[in-house]
Design a protein around this nucleic acid. Structure first.
Lengths: 93, 93
DNA sequence: TTGACAGGCAAGCAACCACTTGCCTATTGT
DNA sequence: ACAATAGGCAAGTGGTTGCTTGCCTGTCAA
């Protein structure tokens, strides 16, 4: 539970979720280049790999080996807990 | 935006939001004792004060001086961005 | 008015985190 | 077979963070 919140506390990881939301089953290299192309971020491959591990441990991403590729898939289910925990209401003036 | 995610990445701060959701306009000391009574946490007053500052800077809490008291109020509006950013869908098998 | 109460400021510290570097394993194509 | 490709492991590092300690300010009640 804490893992989910800590996972999305990082901007790079949020961007990774965005990319996976747009298209599932992306490899590490694909995600790396997407970060560079579309967001101007150039972390090393290992850095991105570690981010994906964090997301995976939080249950937000699932990875599947296929040949020499490792395909990553998003799972937004854990995020539902957030809106459940603090339901929306009016902000007091 | 990043502030909101980082704010709720901490368990103590999430508990503070829980308490404020149950009752608004609580003082620092009230929140301290609630953490102790109901959750077994005994951070110092300053620690809790710093947590409240983080929540305030994230727009999740508003504080108002009244006499020698400082009353804290929750604002869950920023949390709505989360469910907006990653809409729910089925997890792939 | 003065002590008690509610809170604020700032420095110091240990743990954590994002990131890099260097090297290694496994799979694929030619 | 072997080079290229995709990814993994682990140690090291600088910056951030959560927390404490010590002292100070402002407000209220007796």
């Amino acid at each position: 539970m804490t893992d989910v919140f800590k996972a999305i506390a990082d901007e790079t990881r949020r961007l990774l979720l965005d990319e996976l939301l747009e298209r599932d089953e992306q490899t590490l290299f694909e995600l790396c280049s997407k970060l560079a192309m579309r967001h101007g971020l150039t972390p090393t491959r290992q850095a991105v790999s570690q981010h994906l591990s964090v997301l995976e441990q939080a249950g937000l991403v699932r990875a599947e080996r296929r040949g020499r590729y490792r395909l990553h898939t998003i799972d937004t289910a854990p995020l539902a807990q957030i809106s459940e925990r603090w339901p929306q209401r009016e902000a007091p003036r």
